[in-house]
Amino acid sequence: MRTPRDRVFVTEVLSTDPEIIEKVIEFHDASAGEFFFLKDNPEKVHLLVEEFYDEEKKDWMVKNEHGEVIDYYKDALPLFSATSMLDIIRQHCQFELRSSGGSWFAILGGGEVVANEDEEDLVALLWRILKKVHLEYPM
């Protein structure tokens, strides 16, 4: 089993069908300490420092680590952490995560078992499950 990482890679988010990303984001609330990237500049990762309501724009905005104000829900995509993926998955279905012999597997609502594939770490498995539950367990 590979050493776990704490969040998905930009390439994983970008290689996902945009419709699935939109469904996943419906259940994601931005919060301080999370990482994200701008849709038009995926090479640079930002840290979300603050979320606030902009009275002028009548919308929620965020500030990154440089104090730049960003329209997060319009211009950015989150780099989901393992914890946030677990929270979202649990909103959609009954879920149990286990490890055995260096492998990870999850037991979903109807008893379906989803195991990690060759060289797939925990974050990659959770990302795959998160995309799957939005299609098979819609809310």
Rank of each mutant, 00 (worst) to 15 (best):
residue 94 Q to C: 11
residue 38 L to V: 06
residue 28 H to A: 05
residue 68 E to H: 14
residue 76 A to W: 04
residue 1 M to N: 00
residue 67 G to N: 10
residue 137 Y to C: 07
residue 98 R to S: 05
residue 81 S to W: 07
residue 4 P to N: 11
residue 37 F to I: 14
residue 8 V to P: 03
residue 9 F to E: 09
residue 63 K to C: 11
residue 114 V to I: 08
residue 68 E to P: 09
residue 47 L to S: 03
residue 30 A to M: 05
residue 98 R to Y: 06
residue 21 I to N: 12
residue 71 D to V: 05
residue 40 D to W: 12
residue 104 W to Q: 08
residue 130 L to C: 05
residue 114 V to F: 03
residue 35 F to E: 10
residue 117 E to F: 03
residue 76 A to V: 06
residue 17 D to C: 01
residue 11 T to R: 01
residue 90 R to C: 09
residue 71 D to G: 02
residue 62 V to M: 10
residue 126 L to H: 07
residue 100 S to C: 08
residue 128 R to C: 03
residue 99 S to L: 00
residue 49 V to L: 13
residue 97 L to Q: 03
residue 56 E to N: 12
residue 54 D to P: 05
residue 88 I to L: 13
residue 45 V to K: 14
residue 113 V to T: 09
residue 66 H to C: 09
residue 48 L to R: 04
residue 32 A to L: 09
residue 106 A to Y: 04
residue 26 E to S: 04
residue 94 Q to F: 14
residue 104 W to M: 07
residue 129 I to T: 06
residue 76 A to M: 04
residue 33 G to I: 09
residue 23 K to Y: 13
residue 134 H to Y: 00
residue 57 K to W: 08
residue 97 L to C: 02
residue 116 N to S: 08
residue 76 A to I: 03
residue 30 A to W: 13
residue 11 T to I: 01
residue 57 K to I: 05
residue 40 D to Q: 13
residue 94 Q to S: 15
residue 83 T to W: 12
residue 12 E to H: 09
residue 51 E to G: 03
residue 21 I to T: 14
residue 29 D to R: 15
residue 117 E to R: 10
residue 46 H to R: 10
residue 98 R to C: 01
residue 98 R to G: 00
residue 26 E to G: 01
residue 23 K to F: 13
residue 4 P to Q: 08
residue 101 G to C: 02
residue 3 T to Q: 12
residue 85 M to K: 07
residue 77 L to C: 01
residue 47 L to P: 01
residue 12 E to M: 13
residue 107 I to Y: 00
residue 65 E to C: 03
residue 123 V to D: 06
residue 39 K to P: 05
residue 53 Y to D: 00
residue 83 T to Y: 12
residue 32 A to D: 14
residue 76 A to F: 02
residue 102 G to F: 09
residue 76 A to C: 06
residue 36 F to Q: 11
residue 131 K to S: 13
residue 101 G to Q: 06
residue 68 E to F: 15
residue 115 A to Y: 14
residue 53 Y to M: 02
residue 27 F to L: 12
residue 55 E to K: 08
residue 30 A to N: 03
residue 69 V to Q: 08
residue 60 W to C: 06
residue 24 V to C: 05
residue 95 F to Q: 02
residue 13 V to S: 04
residue 105 F to L: 10
residue 71 D to W: 09
residue 100 S to I: 11
residue 128 R to N: 04
residue 106 A to G: 04
residue 89 I to T: 02
residue 23 K to W: 11
residue 11 T to G: 00
residue 42 P to T: 11
residue 94 Q to R: 15
residue 18 P to T: 01
residue 118 D to M: 10
residue 127 W to L: 03
residue 12 E to R: 10
residue 43 E to K: 15
